[in-house]
Design a protein around this nucleic acid. Structure first.
Lengths: 116, 116
DNA sequence: ATTTAATGCAACTGTATGGTTGCATTTAGC
DNA sequence: GCTAAATGCAACCATACAGTTGCATTAAAT
């Protein structure tokens, strides 16, 4: 590896996070994440019980979450277990922090301009 | 005010954040937020210039962002200035932190269970 | 008062999304 | 091997959404 391995994660353009936020932008999917987060890996039928929508609807939500990298599935015999995957969610969080920081920076610059 | 004013913000159910994430789940809207965040309040035409979509499209995006409480508009004569509103974004960030914490908590519990 | 820039309103289009149902496939268990 | 549970696949439906265009309205500027 050249000079050094990336200790600092590569800076992604903001727009890259749109799919992640879109995946989070649904009540049912947020609920699924919460359930997987607390309850650990679970099968589709397990996840479906307790909701009032069909198994296929849950499957679709899970694939959207998976496409966004928020959950991951492992085959276990005849069933398919889904588990929460924290990486992308953490990156999403960091992107919000980045926006907030730019905001603070802009405010500070404005303040300095006013006070001069 | 009764015993005490809320120092701790009321705990919102996770699902309440879905509309905010949905609003963030679009590349153009993330861009609008970034622009407003850095450049301060701006008019619709200003925001439209530099994009390849129509003014009305931008207007629609802005109303979605406004409905989610992420931006705010102030009338200024014949034009309407839009500015970034950091509150909701910060709450969204905190909701992600909350999920991550539950995850850590679940992991710790699992670890304890395995080690016993 | 007239002009013109900035915006609002409304109708319309294509496509994505959330949901359903029906049937096929895989696999654990007896 | 047979049955039943867990899942996959595909078609279908209604609605929401991103975008457009055309025209009306408001207010700055001359």
């Amino acid at each position: 590896m050249s000079p050094r391995a990336r200790a600092v994660p590569k800076k992604r353009p903001l727009g890259d996070f749109a799919p992640i936020f879109a995946a989070l932008g649904d009540e049912m999917r947020l609920r699924l994440i919460a359930v997987l987060c607390v309850g650990g890996a679970m099968s589709i039928t397990q996840l479906t019980s307790g909701t009032d929508i069909s198994r296929q609807a849950i499957t679709k939500h899970l694939s959207i979450l998976a496409a966004a990298g928020l959950v991951r599935d492992v085959k276990a015999g005849r069933e398919r277990l889904w588990e929460f995957e924290p990486n992308q969610l953490d990156e999403a969080r960091r992107s919000l922090v980045a926006i907030a920081q730019q905001w603070d920076h802009a405010l500070a610059k404005l303040k300095r301009a006013v006070e001069s």
